[in-house]
Amino acid sequence: MKNDTPKVFKSIFALFVVAIFMIGLFYAFVSMPKGWGVNVNNRVSRLYILKNVRTATRLLDSGKFFAKGMKPLRAEVPYKPIKFKKTANLEDGAANVVTSIVVDYRGFDTLGEVTVLFLAASGVMMLLFGKRVKPKRKKTEPSLIMYVGTRIAFAVIFLFGIYIFVHGHLTPGGGFPGGAVIASGILGLFLGRNGYTPNHAGLKVFESLSGIAFVIIGLIGLFSVKSFLANFLPTGIIGNLYSAGFISLIYIAIGMKVGSELAAVVDSMIGDTKEEWS
């Protein structure tokens, strides 16, 4: 398709849009209160924990906080203020605070992110679906050095990926980077040998089972603690491998899922397929 718009106008228009955007962003940051960040006095924790929770329980019992005509919510579940310092120094026992935010406080978001990745992989596979065909042009056969080297490196990379997601609650890292590291090891295997194909059915089963495991952990929380994705395991002593409740379980599930998904994406991208519509 031919486009007759002169290039200069396009560039000017693009610059105009970008300029408006930048001016807005600049204005937004300039007009921000001093300190360049969250106003600490208004922080959530201060507002709700230090001032209000004690009185909140009392007021909730008297029903004053509800609008007229509204039934009190959670009437059957009494309002419990959160008990901090249940574990040594954090409320969910993870030495890595990022992890406890990602998996415990905002575990639902993480479930959503995993789903996004799963759907992206599914979309790629759906688009590239078809009968596998042999490539017409012959590919270069990688040398023996690559073949042996990638296989040895794969073992180390795989181990490292597992380390990253098993220690997610202790050291920086977690399910997503661990899975990505594993997938890049599998990518190395693809580079090392022509016609390398992982076990498709195995990858699919792995992917499904780990996703199911994640949701089932959430459902166990729903039926034992009455809240979806609640931490239902004891939090243990901070810094131990067996601590932080269900965080490491979820990270193992995420790591396996991300690893197998990305590997499947790479596989379906590399393989040559022919579309077929019955």
Binding site: E76, V77, L111, T115, F118, A201, K204, V205, E207, S208, G211, I212, F214, V215, I216, G218, L219, L222, K226, S227, F228
Partner: peptide, 26 residues
């Protein structure tokens, strides 16, 4: 058991089955 606290199932059950549909696909 209060059924309204289980409204999370409206998201959870589809997710569970979405993950397991590839298994059904076999």
């Amino acid at each position: 058991m209060n059924i309204f606290n289980n409204a999370a199932l409206l998201i959870g059950i589809p997710l569970l089955f979405a993950f397991s549909i590839p298994l059904f696909g076999f």
